[in-house]
Amino acid sequence: MKLLELSGIGKRFGGLNALTDVSLHIGRGEIYGLIGPNGAGKTTLFNVITGLYQPDSGEFNFNGKRYRAAKPHVLAGAGIARTFQNIRLFANLTALENVMIGRHVRTRSGVMGSIMNSRAMRLEEKACRDKAGELLNLVGLKKPHQTLAKNLSYGEQRRLEIARALAMEPLLLALDEPAAGMNATETENLKELIEGIRNAGITVLLIEHDVKLIMGLCDRVAVLDYGRKIAEGVPDEVRNDPQVISAYLGVDGE
């Protein structure tokens, strides 16, 4: 059962080929890792998957439907949620509001309902608020839910971003370097959180620099180098792939 399937994806920026002929698929319920040296095209691929960039070539299938030049909000509605490498929260809104905004695609109240304060709207608003609170507890945000996002610590902001993405009830949760800047304990907590998310039935796509985390968490891993996929497979295979060692692990001397 494939949830996401990319074939022959290419993306150019001016003269630079950021992605060349990338094909991969992610099965339902998998934790799929994406690694590669800096500038290998991981984030570009991520942006293609979430609709921020339109690919120049290739095919994009998600949940049995083909998407062409789809906008981010369309893909979000289809069930792809993401976090950002350089955290992009709504800084001047509260933690609770941030998560409630994540519920946008799964709620419907419009202008008239809001002005009339209709019963349906009040019920939905309450459900939305409750759900947002639950999610904040789930990711383990200890500070009051009314704290402004920008006043949270770095690790808390990372977790708030995950809660906000989970609020969208996604089929695929795409995490862009969620462990960046975390200490060992925080990373361990994150690992448990991601496993919990998978056990709740959500497919996870993970970009990470922390090779140990990736290898310990992912079912399958793909390696990008210079915009091309050079290897794919279960972590042990990839770890021993000579191309990967020379392109990535070798360079880092790990």
């Binding site: 979430t50 950002f84 992009r88 709504f90 800084a91 809104l93």
Partner: peptide, 15 residues
């Protein structure tokens, strides 16, 4: 307000 704060993040939320 989400758009005001960060348009790209807002569109990633399905807005």
């Amino acid at each position: 307000m989400a758009i005001r704060e960060d348009e790209i993040a807002a569109s990633a939320m399905g807005i």
